[in-house]
Design a protein around this nucleic acid. Structure first.
Length: 304
DNA sequence: CGGATTTGACCAGCGC
DNA sequence: GCGCTGGTCAAATCCG
């Protein structure tokens, strides 16, 4: 299964310089930037504007390069994934015996649920389901990778929902602590999330969502609510295949909110319609638009 | 003062 | 049964 052809690695948020270039010829962009300014622009202003255009070109090239890298990574990931799937199909027993993790952790690590292994020991699975009424086979979960500032030591993953931290633990396989959150709508909302820094990359937060929100997204309930820069972790589309979403918020904090959101959908299973919903909700958000306008005008003023 | 966060204690599952 | 580990509870503390 080749997902890479179906993945659009750039969100069509119209904040992408690369997209800007694609949609508008360079001359036109140049013209628009100039016409945006005061008509009687001085030579100095024109120089800074051309510098801005140069900068834009450079960023576009960089963005294009990154997009290509991402596409390549996606292709590699998909081929590895299909290989793994094939391997798991051929060796279901090995897979099962090799997973020494606990039931909950095995589910979080996206290994095949026990009931999915198709083993003939139906009695044992029945026994398990009897012992564990809270068997989480039905509980959907997803992983979200969030890139943050390396200096950012917090374990905050802003996804728009409100969370209440109820615990923190240092786990054996990762020196950085794992934080446990419950949805603030609990107990009516059963969703939990775990946030821990990646072992490989300390600047990456790994948020594991468990369950589905049984209430609308806070941004839909309170349109005036503050930071809405996160994304819904697609809990509605959660499946046993653990959708994975990677966000890059390394710069969203340093300047204006939202302008540097570059979500990368690593999960081909996430329907395009969801992505479009996310984009739509972002573009409809007045705060997002205001932040975008402020960011653009600020950048232009800075360069002029 | 009320809600959120912190943190040590406790509990349950699992392997030996 | 015991120890290890992850997950949760709840009292203490913090903060707006």
């Amino acid at each position: 299964m080749d997902y890479s052809s179906r993945i659009n690695t750039s969100l069509d948020l119209n904040i992408n310089p690369h997209r800007l270039h694609e949609e508008l010829p360079k001359k036109e962009v140049e013209h628009n930037f100039f016409s945006l300014g005061v008509k009687k622009s001085s030579v100095k202003e024109q120089q800074s504007s051309s510098a801005l255009v140069e900068e834009l070109k450079r960023v576009s090239a960089e963005n294009k390069k990154l997009t290509e890298m991402l596409t390549e990574m996606c292709e590699n990931y998909n081929s590895m994934r299909s290989n793994l799937m094939e391997y798991m199909r051929k060796n279901p027993d090995k897979e099962q015996s090799s997973s020494k993790k606990r039931k909950s952790e095995s589910s979080f690590n996206n290994s095949a649920p026990k009931s999915m292994n198709g083993n003939s020991e139906s009695s044992s699975t029945d026994e398990e389901s009897c012992k564990k009424p809270k068997e989480d086979i039905k509980t959907p979960f997803s992983k979200v990778y969030v890139r943050t500032e390396a200096s950012d030591t917090g374990l905050i993953v802003k996804d728009g929902y409100q969370w209440r931290k109820y615990g923190q633990k240092v786990t054996r396989d990762n020196p950085s602590p794992r934080a446990y959150f419950k949805c603030s709508f609990a107990p009516s909302c059963p969703v939990k999330k775990k946030v821990q820094r990646s072992v490989d990359d300390q600047s990456v937060l790994v948020a594991t969502y468990e369950g589905e929100h049984n209430h609308p997204h806070p941004s839909q309930m309170e349109p005036t609510a503050g930071s809405n820069r996160g994304v819904t972790p697609c809990s509605g589309s959660l499946s046993s295949s653990a959708p994975t979403v990677t966000l890059d918020w390394t710069k969203s904090k340093s300047s204006t909110d939202s302008k540097n959101i570059t979500p990368k959908m690593e999960a081909p299973q996430i329907p395009q319609v969801l992505v479009e919903q996310m984009a739509t909700s972002l573009t409809k958000d007045p705060n997002f638009r205001a932040a975008l306008v402020a960011a653009i005008s600020g950048k232009m003023l800075h360069n002029n």
